[in-house]
Design a binder for these strands. Structure first.
Length: 596
RNA sequence: GCCGCUGUAGCUCAGCUGGUAGAGCACAUCAUUCGUAAUGAUGGGGUCGGAGGUUCGAGUCCUCUCAGCGGCACCA
């Protein structure tokens, strides 16, 4: 950096990544003439640059580009900063056929300088700053992958070719980083899900999960845990229909806005004869699999008269929802077409929003703490362009959510324009193994749906009033949350969640009877226990169950049978503790007791 | 949905320029009864995601299609 700082702001000392992006762009333009440059920011652990080129880059091109980059780095060309008049900059980039740069400059606010960074002959429009020379980039970089991306993030605009890379101070740092990426990939929930026999997916039900017995044990533990939490927090639980008439979705507004993502079922009896059309007649009425639970919950709310004394009414459902997600969006457990939300709707008065929002945040954090999540990223998504409701209502709703966060000193960032059409929302994001963040918890403030579906309560004044509806979920969907949980624990679940808590492995046939007896004792205490009495060596059994990430292996041989003891071995340790069967039962069942 | 990559036994993967499929693990059987991360032997198992095409002949080339993966877009 070779200019004084004149404005307030934070300055990232490390500009290596954006330097590397510039070097990459120069290399690409040298190797692939005619390629247009667009933008190339630094990102977490790396950088990317988007190029416009008819022919996409191939994985082989990456090595060629890297080699060219190394030449540029060795050249040690100084980065120099220039400020150009707008018109000249536009003229220059136009003459080079850099249409995207021209568009960028034209869209810069009039007051802003057109800053150009040069590295020898090559130059780029850039805010900067940069290090003194290209040599400062160093050799510890690597281009990691290629992807498509839209110009300006707009799917109606040109598709660009994005090249991602990562750059570090020295080879050791780079190796470290690559090593960490490899380790993170080993925690991938899809890989562990297969290895640990938790669930699977297949073509015939793409985007929907086949839960295996072990995976479903985890699922049930979590559902039961949330149920206890909700009971303790004053919720009531309901169950609503899977299929409902399109009329209800029309009334709620979802039919017009989200129909293309709904699974619609014609309300017609199909033909069964071979060779005939499936439907005799063009269907007139349609049903839809519910993509969300709120309209159904309002139907329950509307049964009978509600008084202000009934509010806040917190209605929960483990609601199974279907959304016809775009094919390219599906991803393991993280993005599915059938999901079960830990959903609830709080019907309340406007005065109650703040206290309910606050109580919800507390509840959410107590749940996340039980699972050991500390890295939670909160976003407050505000009014989108296409929305229902007037601005005064939006002001109130956004204010209430912000207040709830501030009152608990929770840090958050604004996501302008990303709210739902009916109201603003809080999003609670968690990270997966490779650092991607996923929305899990949410709290949404809705003044619109109660209006559309005509929910009312009788106020103190004897008149009908509109309740406010708070949509909220803590886990989000069981599927996604379990996906994140698998990666979070790297498959090593705490005892209360582990599908199999104890494996009793016998050393010889003579111990088989005692192994079964001990298993029965542990099961009677509520533990999930399996026995392994195969005629295999104990080393073999230990290895197998350790790889299966069984938290406790109890070895029994003649000695244990004789003394009615268990030799316990914990996952991740090779220490053995000899303990009486009675004590083990007490101790393990205590430890396996789920949270509440 | 868009761009790119991938798709071979239950799993992980090999199969160069086209000549009618291989390994390890797993599984089955037999032997072994062996104290804390892999006992040995034998055996069964795939037509190479699907459809079509080129060819005397295709896992290997071409077209279409489906799915998965990496991103992008979307996400009530």
């Amino acid at each position: 950096m070779d200019f004084p700082i004149t404005a307030d702001g934070t300055l990232s000392i490390i500009t290596r990544e954006s330097d590397a992006a510039h070097v990459m762009a120069e290399a690409v333009q040298k190797l692939f003439p005619g390629t247009q440059v667009t933008i190339g920011p630094s990102i977490e652990n790396g950088f990317y640059y988007d190029f416009y080129r008819e022919k996409p880059f191939t994985p082989d091109d990456l090595a060629t580009i890297e080699a060219e980059m190394k030449k540029i780095v060795e050249g040690g060309k100084p980065f120099t900063r220039e400020v150009w008049p707008r018109a000249e900059a536009i003229k220059f980039f136009k003459s080079k056929g850099e249409n995207f740069k021209v568009e960028l400059i034209e869209n810069l606010p009039g007051s802003e300088d057109i800053r150009i960074y040069k590295q020898g002959e090559w130059l780029d429009l850039c805010r900067g700053p940069h290090m003194p020379t290209t040599k400062h980039v160093g050799m510890a970089f690597k281009l990691t992958h290629i992807a498509g991306a839209y110009w300006r993030g707009d799917h109606k605009r040109e598709q660009l070719q994005r090249i991602y890379g990562t750059a570090w101070r020295d080879q050791k740092e780079l190796d470290n980083h690559l090593q960490m990426v490899a380790e993170a990939e080993a925690r991938d929930h899809r890989k562990l899900g297969k290895e640990m026999d938790l669930f699977h997916l297949q073509e015939e039900a793409q985007g929907s999960i086949f839960w295996h017995p072990r995976g479903f044990t985890i699922y049930n533990q979590i559902e039961n845990y949330i149920r206890r939490k909700l009971n303790g927090a004053g919720y009531v639980e309901v169950k609503t229909p899977q299929l409902m008439s399109s009329k209800l979705w029309e009334a709620s507004g979802h039919w017009s806005k989200f129909r293309e993502n709904m699974f619609v079922v014609p309300d017609v009896v199909p033909n069964t004869a071979e060779g005939e059309k499936i439907f005799k007649e063009e269907p007139k009425n349609f049903m839809a699999l519910k993509p969300m639970n709120c309209p159904a919950h309002i139907q329950i709310f509307k049964q009978g008269l509600k008084s202000y004394r009934d509010l806040p009414l917190r209605m929960a459902e483990f609601g199974c929802c279907h959304r016809n997600e775009a094919h390219g969006a599906l991803l393991g457990l993280m993005r599915v077409r059938q999901m079960t939300q830990d959903d609830a709707h709080i019907f309340c008065t406007p005065d109650q929003i703040a206290s309910e929002a606050e109580a919800f945040c507390k509840l959410l954090y107590s749940v996340y703490e039980d699972f050991g999540f500390t890295d939670v990223h909160i976003k407050l998504a505000t009014r989108p362009d296409a929305r229902a409701g007037d601005d005064a209502t939006w002001d109130r709703a956004e204010g209430a959510l912000a207040t709830a966060l501030k009152s608990q000193n929770l840090e958050f960032t604004y996501a302008p324009g990303e709210g739902a059409f009916y109201g603003p929302k809080l999003e609670f994001h968690l990270r997966d193994a490779i650092g991607r963040t996923w929305q899990c918890g949410t709290l949404q403030c809705d003044f619109v749906l109660p209006e559309r579906l005509d929910a009312t309560y009788i106020g103190e004044d004897g008149a009908r009033h509109r309740p406010v509806m708070l949509h909220r979920a803590i886990l989000g969907s069981l599927e996604r949350f379990i996906g994140i949980l698998i990666e979070h624990y790297a498959g090593r679940f705490p005892l209360w969640l582990s599908p199999i808590q104890v494996v009793i492995a016998s050393i010889t046939e003579a111990a088989e009877g005692y192994a079964n007896e001990a298993a029965a004792a542990l099961r009677a205490a509520g533990l999930r226990v399996e026995t392994d009495t195969r005629s295999e060596k104990i080393n073999y059994k230990i290895r197998e169950h350790s790889l299966q990430k069984i938290p406790v292996i109890a070895v029994v041989g003649a000695k244990e049978a004789e003394g009615r003891t268990l030799a316990l071995r914990r996952l991740g340790s090779d220490a053995q503790t000899l303990i009486s069967l009675d004590d083990a039962t007490r101790q393990l069942s205590m430890e396996a007791k789920p949270h509440s």
